[in-house]
Design a protein around this nucleic acid. Sequence first.
DNA 1: TGAATACGAGACATACCGTGTCGTAATATC
DNA 2: GATATTACGACACGGTATGTCTCGTATTCA
Lengths: 194, 194
Amino acid sequence: MAPVGRPRSDASHAAILKATYELLREEGLARLTLDKVASRAGASRSTLYRWWPSRGAIAMEATLDMLNQELSLEPKGDNALAEFRRLLKSVARAMRGGTGRIMAGILAECQRDPETLRLFKENLVAPRRAEVVPLLERGIQDGSIRPGVAPHTILDLTFGAIYHQLLLHVPTDDAWMDGVIDILVNGIAAKPAA
Amino acid sequence: MAPVGRPRSDASHAAILKATYELLREEGLARLTLDKVASRAGASRSTLYRWWPSRGAIAMEATLDMLNQELSLEPKGDNALAEFRRLLKSVARAMRGGTGRIMAGILAECQRDPETLRLFKENLVAPRRAEVVPLLERGIQDGSIRPGVAPHTILDLTFGAIYHQLLLHVPTDDAWMDGVIDILVNGIAAKPAA
DNA sequence: TGAATACGAGACATACCGTGTCGTAATATC
DNA sequence: GATATTACGACACGGTATGTCTCGTATTCA
């Protein structure tokens, strides 16, 4: 099973991802061209096409590392709902600024290229949800979240709100996210006059 | 103030919008080119560029009529919260199928072209919100919605959830929307053991 | 040493864009 | 009517990015 021939150049691979990441931050995915990536990385377009099927795929790989660093879920001793709160606020915070613009670009690219969408769901959405859903289920166990709600629907709502602001380029702040969480937790219905 | 010279051709204008709309439904905004629009409309690209600044602008104009027909808010006698429920379900229903795909395409285009984003917010988001926000304020008045929630944040959440499914190409059904509305109305926090 | 594979450089056809030119058509003013 | 003014369709142009390909060279294993 020993691979035959010249091995893939790690240096080139890393340089390409680095160049991609830099260009994403500078100009966004919309203006990212494989020409620019190749020339900045000191590589040739042939090499890009050899290893990645599309612009979206390169951008995805370059972005995933960054996001995986930036968004880390480190559980504390709180109850599950409190922990979920903290998680949401940290996501909202991460989505402000450059990282959010990159995410919006990727979401846009996903509308033009089904393969990029597949990568996005498979490498970002699904693993994140696989982490968070058990947290919410634990919340139902420990009594902080009422039973009967589908964890996935909670995530559709909360991440939906964040994506919504992202795509409409509405800047968010902590106060906004507090309002979102308040509605999520308490609902909007008037209490039956306790 | 009488206009001088040959007037703009209404026939051509209508044919272009019709062709755009057809192509949007057939192939989506991602694959829409002004070449195809022009040739299907029997017009020339010059004419397109004379009247619209960008592909996004043409798509927007072609889409707005359709959406304005498809989504009409006709108030009934219910209380405001019940009316808002009906509104959300009708939006979610409209966003299934071709119309939703077009919307996702427009949102994607908005990420590449700030002008398209401006048109989107100005001609679609803002007017819709201007209709719905008073409805929610009425809900606070009539006691169906608790005070203290910002109407705009409610909309960020609910439309966010719908956009989210749209952009990730997750098919929705009435049951899903019921779950969303349940969370929105009642929240996810466990009741204090009434 | 040779087979196999990756590499950078660059050519090539294709597609779409945005602009410009041209001859012609339609309308208002004189 | 004649003329100025504007819109129209057809088409050409340069620019940019794509995806595929070929070439000579470099690197690794057998």
